[in-house]
Structures are given as structure tokens and as C-alpha cells.
């Protein structure tokens, strides 16, 4: 509880570090903030070309929205994913890149990874805003769902923050962590229904049946992935325009709370030793 107070009293520092990150990033570029859209747009184009045009992946039509636009369907999962990946990548590096600061000045260390979460969130909000406008243009009835979209965005940010806190500490002790992470994020993305619908996995899993003579199916394992649940909720709200299962909400909330609690504990345990370990 006292720790929360300490973090809260450092909110101004958090805001300033976030601004440093945001302002510093696109300084001296002509397109500025527009660059943050470039990456998702490029991914959208290439995935749409490869998976919708070549492989003919056909996700179900939005129900009840009736939407049938692969690129938008893709973005509803891709943008939350790239946000998550950005937070984890930037958060992981935050302590090591700021080692000079940590060794010379006292302040609540946790603001370093948290400022990365905040600056990634800033870009993400911008991207999601553009996506929502695009969805409205093609006739999706998104507006009433926006409060719930904000809620799930918050939950995902909390989940990602927890993971980033744990990994930032791990990276101080083992610099291997960053290389592991690159690989893991790549695998993880393909294990999340971003460029294909999870219904394909469920169908395939039903065909295979229980694994190794047990009743555990591929789909059961597949659903252990928290990002799968997050992406499902985002799609339901944005693309289908319907209320996601209460169960999905509970799973997402559970992951978010678990992650932030463990992340904070791990961070607190180690923050005193940061200056000499770095």
C-alpha cells in the first residue's frame, strides 16, 4: 500500500519521462507521429496480401455487424498485439538503457518501465482511434462499445505492464532475456489468432481429438494463451459489435491482475539492488 502511494506521488515524473519518450522519438522527422501508423499499415498490407489473397483465409463475417473486410478484421487483433509486443520490448530494455540515471539519481525506479507502457499506450490510442474511424466508415456500429473497448485496452495495458516489469528485472541479471524475447514474441504471435481465426484451430483440434490418449485437446492448450482471449474480446467488440462472453472478461481480468501483482512483487524485491547490479 505504501508502495502504491510512492508510485502515485511520482506521477509527475512518470508523465515527464513519458513525454521525453514521446517527444524524443519523432524529433526531427517530417511525418512525426504519423510514423507510428506506418508499421501497422505495412504489416496490414503484407498480411492481407499473403493470408487473404494467397492463402485465402476467410474469417467469419462480423456477427451481427455483417462486416467482411479482412484488413480491418486483421487490425482488430494486430493493433493490440503490436502494442503488447512494444510494451514488453521497450519495458524490458528500460532499466538497462537508463542505467546511467539509476546509478546517479534516486527516484522510484518503477517509473522507468511504466513510462514505456505509457508512451506505447499513447501511440496505441492513436492507432486505435484511426481503426475505429475506419470501422465506422465501413458501417460498423462501434460507438456504443467504446467504453468497453477502453476497459479491455486498460486490462491489456495492465497485463503487458506486469510482464514488462518482470522482464526488465530479468534482463538486468541475464542479458540473454532480450534475445529470448525476440524469438518468443515471434512464436507467440503465431500462436495467437491474429492472422487466422481461432475457429480454424478449434476445428482442427476436434479432428485430432485427445492428445496421447488423454482428453486434453490442442484447443485446450491453445486457450491457455492469454493473448488469445484478449484478441477475442477486441474482435467481438470492434469487428462483431457484440458483448464478449463474461468468461472471456474474467480470464482477461485474471491474467491482468495476476501479471501486475507478480510483476510488482518481483520488481520491488529487486529494485534496491539495481544500481550495483547494472
Amino acid at each position: 500500500m505504501r508502495y502504491l502511494k510512492e508510485v502515485f506521488s511520482a506521477r509527475e515524473l512518470l508523465a515527464n519521462l513519458t513525454l521525453r519518450e514521446i517527444r524524443g522519438k519523432y524529433k526531427r522527422t517530417i511525418f512525426g507521429q504519423l510514423w507510428s501508423l506506418a508499421n501497422p499499415l505495412a504489416l496490414m498490407l503484407i498480411y492481407t496480401f499473403v493470408f487473404a489473397f494467397i492463402f485465402r483465409v476467410r474469417p467469419d463475417k462480423g456477427d451481427p455487424s455483417g462486416l467482411d473486410v479482412f484488413a480491418l478484421w486483421l487490425l482488430c487483433g494486430l493493433l493490440p498485439w503490436t502494442f503488447f509486443a512494444n510494451v514488453v520490448n521497450m519495458g524490458l530494455a528500460s532499466l538497462v538503457t537508463n542505467s546511467g540515471l539509476i546509478q546517479k539519481v534516486y527516484f522510484t525506479r518503477i517509473v522507468l518501465p511504466l513510462s514505456m507502457v505509457a508512451s506505447a499506450a499513447y501511440n496505441w490510442i492513436f492507432e486505435m482511434g484511426v481503426l475505429i474511424i475506419a470501422l465506422i466508415i465501413v458501417g460498423a456500429w462501434v460507438l456504443p462499445w467504446i467504453p468497453l473497448v477502453i476497459l479491455i485496452m486498460l486490462l491489456l495495458a495492465i497485463f503487458a505492464a506486469g510482464v514488462a516489469l518482470m522482464l526488465s528485472i530479468a534482463n538486468v541479471y541475464f542479458r540473454d532475456t532480450q534475445y529470448f524475447l525476440t524469438i518468443i514474441l515471434q512464436l507467440w504471435m503465431y500462436l495467437t489468432p491474429i492472422i487466422y481465426p481461432s475457429s480454424l484451430v478449434v476445428a482442427q483440434s476436434a479432428r485430432v481429438g485427445g492428445l496421447f490418449g488423454t482428453s486434453i485437446t490442442v484447443s485446450d492448450i491453445y486457450h491457455l494463451n492469454p493473448m488469445q482471449h484478449f484478441v477475442e474480446v477486441f474482435r467481438n467488440l470492434l469487428y462483431d459489435n457484440r458483448f464478449p462472453d463474461l468468461g472471456e472478461w474474467l480470464v482477461c481480468t485474471g491474467w491482468a491482475v495476476g501479471s501486475i501483482v507478480i510483476g510488482t512483487i518481483v520488481f520491488r524485491r529487486n529494485e534496491r539492488n539495481l544500481a550495483e547490479t547494472l
Partner: peptide, 23 residues
């Protein structure tokens, strides 16, 4: 212990005063 740690080199002196002050 070291002055100017926490300065962001791309930002102006003005912006850095606020940043460093809050650090």
C-alpha cells in the same frame, strides 16, 4: 553525483529543465 544525467539530448534545455527537475 553527476550533473545532467537524465538529460535527453534531443530535447531543448527548457524541456530538460522540467524533466530533470522532476527526476
Amino acid at each position: 553525483l553527476e550533473v545532467g544525467s537524465g538529460f535527453h539530448t534531443e530535447l531543448s534545455g527548457r524541456e530538460n529543465i522540467f524533466l530533470n527537475g522532476s527526476i
